[in-house]
């Protein structure tokens, strides 16, 4: 499965696994939009993500914008390696709230 969903504090946490690409990013999009539609803030956990392509990044941008308009939050957790470099390449590391660990997430 490309993601696992858990509850952490009052957030829905979507942990992305392996590689998010053109083929599976629509699944991630569908789930992210569903979480936001229910009115929950979301943590996107990158700790087991090895690769994310532009369609995955675009999905996060769209979800982040929806969250913002609904006064919810979308926070990236534990981005490192290639996925972090992609966020840096697109300057989104300066846009998305990012925390190093799940334990750094505030109530």
């Amino acid at each position: 499965m490309i993601y696992q969903q858990t509850t952490y504090l009052h957030y829905q946490c979507l942990q992305l696994n392996g590689e998010v690409d053109l083929h599976n990013s629509p699944q991630v999009r569908k789930q992210l939009l569903a979480i936001l539609k229910k009115g929950d803030s979301v943590l996107v956990d990158f700790s087991t993500l090895s690769y994310i392509d532009s369609s995955g990044i675009a999905t996060l941008v769209e979800a982040f914008n929806i969250a913002k308009n609904k006064q919810l939050t979308l926070t990236i957790v534990a981005a490192s390696g290639g996925p972090l470099q992609v966020l840096e390449l697109t300057n989104l590391d300066k846009v998305f709230p990012m925390v190093a660990n799940l334990t750094d997430v505030k109530e």
Partner: peptide, 19 residues
Amino acid sequence: HTQLDENTIDIMARLKLEL
């Protein structure tokens, strides 16, 4: 070549244009 949503495609194109 893809079945991506129109919103995703638009944002992907803008990301590359920004780059």
